[in-house]
Computed example of a mutant assay.
Amino acid sequence: MSEEKDPEKKIIIDSDWKEQVRQEKENLKEEPEAEPSSPPLEPEPEPEVASAPGAGQFPPADFTLLISMLATQAFAAMGHIPDPATGQASKHPEVAKHMIDLLAVLEEKTKGNLDPQENAALESVLHQLRMAYVDSK
C-alpha cells in the first residue's frame, strides 16, 4: 500500500487542461472561417435517409417500442415474419430464444418500475413469444 517504495508509480495531474482549451478556442476564433455557409451553433440538417420512399419520422422512444422491437426480432427469428430483403422466412431458434431471454431480463430488472400499461404489454408479449417458441420447436 505504500506508494513511496515504487518510484515508477506516479500520479500525473494535468491542471493545465482548462488553459489549453481556452487557447484552442481563441485560436479557432482567430482563424478565418473555412465554411462561411455553416454557422457553428446551427444544428445539422436531417439525413436524406428520412426522405427515402417508405421512410417516415421515428416514433417516440419509449419502453413499449423497445418491447416491440425485441418481440419483432424474436418472431422473425422463429420464421413468423419474412425477411424484407428476400421475402423468405427463416428459422433461427437460438436468436429467438436470446430475444425472449432479453425481454425476460427487462421484466426482471424493471419489476415495480413500470406503469400498468407497460407491465401488461411486457407480460403479454413474453407470453405470446414463449407459446410461439414452444410451437415452433
Rank of each mutant, 00 (worst) to 15 (best):
1 M>R: 08
3 E>P: 05
3 E>D: 13
4 E>A: 13
5 K>V: 14
6 D>M: 04
6 D>E: 10
9 K>V: 08
9 K>Y: 12
11 I>P: 01
11 I>E: 15
13 I>D: 15
14 D>Y: 12
15 S>W: 13
16 D>C: 04
16 D>R: 12
17 W>L: 14
18 K>E: 12
19 E>T: 14
19 E>K: 14
20 Q>G: 02
20 Q>I: 11
21 V>C: 08
21 V>S: 10
22 R>L: 09
22 R>S: 12
23 Q>C: 01
24 E>G: 05
24 E>C: 00
30 E>I: 14
32 P>H: 09
32 P>D: 12
35 E>F: 13
38 S>A: 14
38 S>R: 15
39 P>W: 00
39 P>Q: 09
39 P>T: 02
41 L>H: 15
42 E>L: 12
43 P>W: 04
43 P>C: 01
44 E>I: 09
45 P>A: 09
45 P>Y: 08
50 A>P: 00
50 A>N: 03
51 S>M: 02
52 A>S: 11
53 P>A: 03
53 P>K: 03
54 G>M: 03
55 A>I: 13
55 A>Q: 10
56 G>N: 01
57 Q>D: 05
58 F>R: 13
60 P>L: 05
62 D>A: 06
62 D>V: 02
63 F>M: 04
67 I>F: 06
73 Q>G: 06
77 A>C: 07
78 M>D: 04
80 H>P: 01
82 P>G: 03
82 P>R: 04
85 A>T: 08
88 Q>W: 00
88 Q>Y: 08
89 A>F: 07
89 A>Y: 03
90 S>T: 15
93 P>G: 07
94 E>N: 08
95 V>T: 10
96 A>V: 01
96 A>T: 05
96 A>Q: 01
98 H>P: 01
101 D>R: 14
101 D>A: 15
102 L>T: 13
103 L>E: 01
103 L>R: 01
103 L>G: 03
104 A>P: 03
105 V>I: 14
106 L>Y: 09
106 L>R: 05
107 E>F: 07
108 E>G: 04
109 K>C: 00
110 T>P: 07
111 K>N: 13
113 N>L: 11
115 D>Q: 03
116 P>Y: 03
116 P>Q: 09
116 P>T: 07
117 Q>W: 03
118 E>W: 05
118 E>S: 15
119 N>E: 15
120 A>F: 11
121 A>V: 13
122 L>W: 00
123 E>H: 11
125 V>K: 01
125 V>E: 03
127 H>T: 11
127 H>G: 01
129 L>H: 02
132 A>N: 10
134 V>D: 10
135 D>V: 09
135 D>M: 13
